[in-house]
Computed example of a mutant assay.
Amino acid sequence: MLRSGSEILQRAHKEGYGVGAFNFVNFEMLSAIFEAAHEASSPIIVQASEGAIKYMGMEVTVGLVRLLSSRYPHIPVALHLDHGTTYESCAKAIRAGFTSVMIDASHHKFEENLHETQRVVEMAHACGVSVEAELGRLMGIEDNISVDEKDAVLVNPEEAELFVKESGVDFLAPAIGTSHGAFKFKGEPKLDFERLQEVKRRTNIPLVLHGASAIPDYVKEAFLSTGGDLKGSKGVPFAFLQEAVKGGINKVNTDTDLRIAFMAEVRRVANEDNTQFDLRKFFAPGMKAMKKVMVERMQILGSAGKI
């Protein structure tokens, strides 16, 4: 049976560890997520974006998660809508069986973000579904950014406290310097851990790190050696992920790492045998590569062995 996001993250919040929230767009990614959780004895959050749902179809998206959840009944798992853009999108996901949703109104002014989040919280809580929201703008901190610019981009701890109190949101994604995708930092990686700790102190709820892919060296090298081009991408170092968890992060979103690891293996197989057209010969190594990334991530975040 699927759990709510709150049920999984409240324990992480109380015990001080992070739970991986892994995006999927097909059966192969989802199966690898469950296999990794089984191997690491870790709770998981599986998430689908609106784009992924459009690609797979809502019934397939929910059906696959329910199927694999029944195959691994010992694994605590929540099905989360990642970056829901509207009230209607969140409502549709809840009706279909999602146990957690994110309403992302962070691009609006504070008051409108709060209003939209309140609407979703009221609806979702009536259905036993948890809600995530976001404050601040997700973009990497550059070396030459000024204090004023930094404050304009990153989460304001006082606003975070008010937002959580007024909205009733279950967990919050505070912008502390990460960004989505593979290209997070132009200079040395920087995250505002002091700001994170202050948000945690003021809100005392599970916090979420978006844009948290690390792009480990072995994944990057595998991708580059098979003809890929990451254009000097930089991820969030493992040490930063661990420091973020110490500072109060309990949900850590991961997507880019899985895609890069998977495609590196697909390219490797294609390069080694250009007569190959059995899809299983491509997908099985890709799934194994993604599983390795996720088991390692669960160990780093501290969720391994928590079942």
Rank of each mutant, 00 (worst) to 15 (best):
L135A: 04
A244K: 00
E265G: 03
P285K: 01
G84W: 02
L68D: 09
Y17V: 04
R11E: 13
G63S: 07
D143K: 09
D148T: 15
I44G: 00
S225T: 14
F193K: 06
Q47I: 07
G235E: 00
A222W: 11
L209I: 06
M29L: 15
Q276W: 07
H180N: 12
A93R: 00
F283H: 12
D192E: 04
V295H: 06
A284F: 15
I45L: 12
D273W: 01
E149P: 08
N156I: 05
S70A: 11
M263Y: 14
L64C: 09
F277Y: 12
A133V: 08
D192P: 02
A133H: 04
H210P: 06
A32E: 02
G168C: 06
G211Q: 00
D255R: 01
I8C: 08
G128N: 03
K109S: 15
M102A: 04
I45N: 10
V219T: 09
A133T: 11
I141V: 10
I44N: 00
E35M: 10
E132Y: 02
R137P: 14
V164Q: 03
C127A: 14
Y55R: 06
E221L: 10
T275V: 04
M298T: 09
D143I: 11
M263W: 11
F282C: 00
P206Y: 11
R268I: 12
E161R: 14
Y55A: 07
F193G: 07
S42N: 07
L209G: 04
L9M: 11
R202H: 12
A91Q: 13
R280H: 14
R201G: 09
K190R: 12
Y72A: 04
F223N: 01
T99P: 05
T226G: 12
S70D: 14
A261I: 11
A284T: 15
M290Y: 08
L172V: 07
R201A: 13
E28I: 08
N113I: 07
V164P: 01
A48G: 04
K234L: 12
H74W: 15
T85Q: 13
T226I: 08
L30T: 01
T99E: 02
E112H: 10
S31L: 14
G228N: 02
R259V: 14
V147P: 13
C127G: 12
Q10W: 13
S6T: 14
S69R: 08
L196E: 03
F27I: 13
S167Y: 02
A133D: 00
E132R: 01
V25M: 05
F183A: 09
A133C: 07
K184I: 06
V252C: 05
V169R: 00
E161S: 15
G168R: 00
G227K: 00
M102K: 00
R95W: 15
V25I: 06
E134W: 08
